[in-house]
């Protein structure tokens, strides 16, 4: 077990190293932090521009490989992920935003899984009946609708509701606006902020769990062992619930494990529209500001999430499936 984990861990570190290095080089080639200064009015003197760029190790007059080597040794030796063009350390900027993203995404993920899987099972059992068709139609609709469109219409609806009620029930920007110290009011305030983005993220997530769980269950419903269960004397619906459902949840659990990765970066649009200072929004900022170090740092964090998700998926399967657990 230990040796295996070590080997897989080493492989993942190697992957991460290559992927993040490639990202750094790509970002350095395609991003132009010098333009930030050149477009300023009045334009700062060349020397001071170069000095700032060199301080952040993003001066395009230095050879790329030299910059890469400095960047890499800083990370490996000092855990220093570098500075943004404004001379802010990017690692701490990323760290502070992880919290906001987590608050936003956790509840929505849980809701999406529960609702999505439930609808998936419900519709699979009623394949081709009207419930399946109606819910399937909604699912297809929400599956393809661009997140921005969905979020913007949720905002419009919330504003109309607020106006109709005459007071602010929903907040459409940020995560907090309460400044007192009553914990209940603080929580209520958080809920008023969270509810809209949560609705958006839940819909998007639930739709995909619905459609995949439906497929998985339909596949296992036709399995021979369900027929065996019926031949034993279980009526169809019990045979499905006892025998097909359990097996069909295994791939869903794997998807849940994998979703950890998308959780933190998948909310870019939602964070932007609802003005939540999470990782997604920070990423947009780094791109706009030609922040090579910042963008790479986020990519690295996302990469770690992906690999943790992959490892978790392996563990989940091993835990749920006796074919893998005992062999």
């Amino acid at each position: 077990m230990g040796r295996f984990l070590l080997r897989r861990g080493a492989n993942y570190v190697a992957m991460l190293f290559v992927a993040v290095s490639a990202t750094y080089l790509l970002a350095s080639v395609f991003m132009d932090p010098r333009s930030n200064y050149l477009s300023r009015n009045p334009r700062p003197p060349m020397d001071s521009i170069n000095a700032s760029l060199t301080a952040a190790n993003i001066n395009d007059e230095d050879p790329l490989l030299l910059r890469y080597w400095r960047w890499l040794t800083d990370i490996v030796l000092h855990w220093n992920w570098g500075l943004s063009p404004d001379q802010e350390p990017v690692a701490s900027a990323v760290a502070t935003r992880i919290g906001a993203s987590t608050q936003l995404v956790t509840l929505a993920t849980v809701l999406a899984i529960v609702i999505g899987v439930a609808i998936g099972v419900y519709t699979a059992i009623r394949q081709y009946k009207w419930q399946d068709r109606v819910l399937g139609g909604f699912a297809t609709f929400f599956l393809v609708i661009p997140t921005a469109v969905l979020a913007l219409f949720v905002v419009i609806a919330a504003i109309y509701i607020n106006e109709a009620l005459g007071f602010r029930l929903f907040y459409v920007t940020g995560l907090h606006s309460y400044e007192g110290d009553n914990p209940w009011l603080w929580l209520l305030d958080l809920a008023q902020h969270l509810i809209l983005p949560t609705i958006v993220l839940t819909i998007i997530g639930a739709v995909s769990y619905h459609l995949t769980q439906r497929t998985y269950l339909l596949d296992t419903m036709k399995a021979d062992y369900v027929r065996t269960a019926r031949a034993k004397g279980l009526p169809l619906h019990l045979a499905i619930r006892k025998h097909a459902l359990r097996t069909s949840l295994i791939p869903t659990a794997v998807n849940v494990a994998f979703s950890i990765a998308t959780v933190f970066t998948g909310a870019v649009i939602t964070e932007t529209i609802f003005a939540i200072n999470g990782l997604g929004r920070y990423f947009v900022t780094t791109i706009v500001n030609n922040d090579i170090n910042g963008a790479t740092c986020i990519a690295a964090f996302a990469g770690v999430c992906t690999l943790v998700g992959a490892l978790l998926a392996d563990l989940v399967v091993a835990w749920l499936d006796p074919r893998i657990r005992i062999s």
């Binding site: 062992y225 019926r230 031949a231 004397g233 279980l234 169809l236």
Partner: peptide, 26 residues
Amino acid sequence: ELELSKYRGNEMAMVFQDPLSALTPV
């Protein structure tokens, strides 16, 4: 289905062709 299931496995039983897929793996 419910009435039939009282007979299935009780008064009449069945053995299928492919034993590899006929038992629930989990």
